[in-house]
């Protein structure tokens, strides 16, 4: 627009400079577009994680700030030599993750295979089967606590009617049943995650593969082992890895159903950290625990991906 009066412009074609200017602007557009997302992710995801490493080397207690000072590796020494809860919690985390991911994967796979068949009202049944995915850990805790309850719980009522137990049990305050009780409730909530992802993957397997197998006389089980499973491998590797990390970190049900008790029988490592953070004020020690936990998870993820040869076979 202002070009009109530009007589002493050295270039012959004024529209060319305009275009170049525009192109220069264009170069910055993608950066402009990702900037807000970038800033919010760096400030509220990466920066906090960074500070955890810093706090893990400090005595940092929000209830007694005047004692705050550099701690060096004191917290880590305490974790590995003096802390009587660390190893049992780590073991509980292991039990928790293995039982969650294992059971959810198996039951989710069964559900996905069932829902992949054609039958009446399939859309509706699918929607119903996936509902627990949308239910929060706290809500699931409420629901299952109503059912496990010693006095009014339906589980006691059903088992007594069937003659399996003779007196009502306090399932969640008994050290022998509390852990498995929470596991069942969380499995209930976790099945749809696997069912949804596996169903999506099942739908992408070409039908011809099965037809070819049928021509070769392979039964249902054989074609499952030789066609379905290999085709699902990458999905299974990735979903189990993501779920392992997710379940390792998930404390909603443990926190609300048992609070880590009785006698720490349901205290996982993450539950231990959450307890330190929510009820305690010793953030330095809590941060050190967090760093150790992070290290364990990181190591696990690398070993898992290497061992399953995900990258080499991944498309």
């Amino acid at each position: 627009m202002h070009v009109q009066g530009d007589v002493d412009l050295p270039v012959k074609n004024p529209s060319k400079t305009k275009k170049m200017k525009k192109r220069k602007m264009e170069k910055w557009i993608p950066y402009l577009f990702i900037l807000p997302s970038f800033l919010i992710i760096v400030s509220f995801l990466f920066y906090p994680i960074g500070t955890v490493f810093y706090y893990s080397l400090q005595y940092y207690d929000i209830s007694a700030p005047y004692y705050n000072k550099f701690a060096g590796l004191d917290h880590f020494k305490r974790i590995f030599t003096e802390d009587d809860l660390f190893l049992p919690s780590l073991f509980n985390s292991f039990k928790w993750v293995v039982s969650q991911v294992g059971l959810q994967l198996i039951l989710g796979m069964i559900l996905a295979l069932l829902l992949n068949q054609t039958f009446k009202f399939r859309g509706f049944v699918r929607a119903v089967a996936f509902i627990p995915w949308a239910i929060s850990g706290v809500l699931a805790s409420v629901m299952w606590s109503l059912m496990y309850n010693e006095h009014m719980g339906v589980i006691n009522d059903l088992l007594m009617r069937m003659g399996i137990i003779s007196t009502p049990q306090a399932w969640l305050s008994d050290t022998t049943t509390a852990f498995i009780g929470v596991v069942i409730a969380e499995v209930w909530r976790g099945i749809p995650f696997f069912a949804i992802t596996l169903l999506a993957a099942l739908q992408s397997i070409p039908e011809e593969l099965y037809e070819a197998a049928r021509v070769d006389g392979a039964g249902r089980w054989k074609s499952y082992i030789h066609i379905t499973l290999p085709q699902l491998k990458n999905t299974i590797v990735l979903t189990t890895l993501l779920r392992t990390i997710w379940e390792f970190n998930n404390v909603d049900l443990l926190f609300n159903l048992t609070g880590g008790g009785p006698a720490h029988s349901t205290t996982t490592l993450t539950m231990y950290i959450a307890e330190q953070a929510v009820h305690g004020s010793n953030f330095g020690y809590g941060s050190a625990l967090t760093v150790v936990t992070f290290g364990i998870l990181f190591l696990f993820a690398i070993i898992y991906l290497k061992a399953s040869r995900f990258e080499r076979e991944g498309d």
Binding site: I41, F44, L45, Y47, P48, I49, T51, V52, Y55, I62, L242, I245, F248, N249, V251, T270, I273, A274, A277, V278, F283, G286, S287, T290, T293, F294, L297, F298, A301
Partner: peptide
């Protein structure tokens, strides 16, 4: 970011 444990964030977020 998908591999950042959510439970790692509660202490630093509280401080921030």
């Amino acid at each position: 970011t998908q591999f950042i444990p959510r439970s790692m964030m509660i202490i630093p977020l509280f401080v921030i």
